[in-house]
């Protein structure tokens, strides 16, 4: 994905200005600049343009509550039921050796 940035503009070599910040998509391969809203290139908008797609910001469900927010822990499954979902083994100490019975 290319960088979303702005670009320079000038009518005189002695006065260059930064403009369209956040509206210019710069191709990561060759650096060509495109208007992110239209796909038109900056250097030749009438001939060179990037393919554009319809985009919109929409909610993904009717319920707008934050139910999917996490508590900050890892997303590795919840512990359910009375017994933890782990295997246990008999362990004993014999002659100063830890013995695990499988």
């Amino acid at each position: 994905m290319g960088k979303v940035t702005g670009t320079t503009s000038a009518t005189d070599p002695e006065k260059v200005e930064w403009e369209d910040d956040g509206q210019i998509l710069r191709c990561p391969w060759h650096g060509w600049e495109f208007d992110i809203a239209t796909g038109e290139s900056v250097f030749n908008p009438h001939k060179v343009r990037a393919r554009s797609f319809d985009t919109a910001v929409e909610s993904t469900s009717d319920d707008t509550s934050e139910e999917s927010a996490t508590d900050g822990g890892c997303d590795c499954g919840a512990v359910e039921g009375d017994q933890p979902p782990v295997d246990t083994y008999e362990v004993d100490v014999e002659d100063q050796q830890v013995v695990v019975y499988l």
Binding site: T7, T8, S9, A10, T11, D12, P13, V16, H30, G31, W32, E33, S41, V42, F43, N44, V48
Partner: peptide, 15 residues
């Protein structure tokens, strides 16, 4: 080069 580096010479109004 101008296609990629135009931002360095923005006062050029044509190739």
């Amino acid at each position: 080069d101008w296609k990629a580096l135009r931002a360095q010479v923005p006062y050029l109004q044509k190739p």
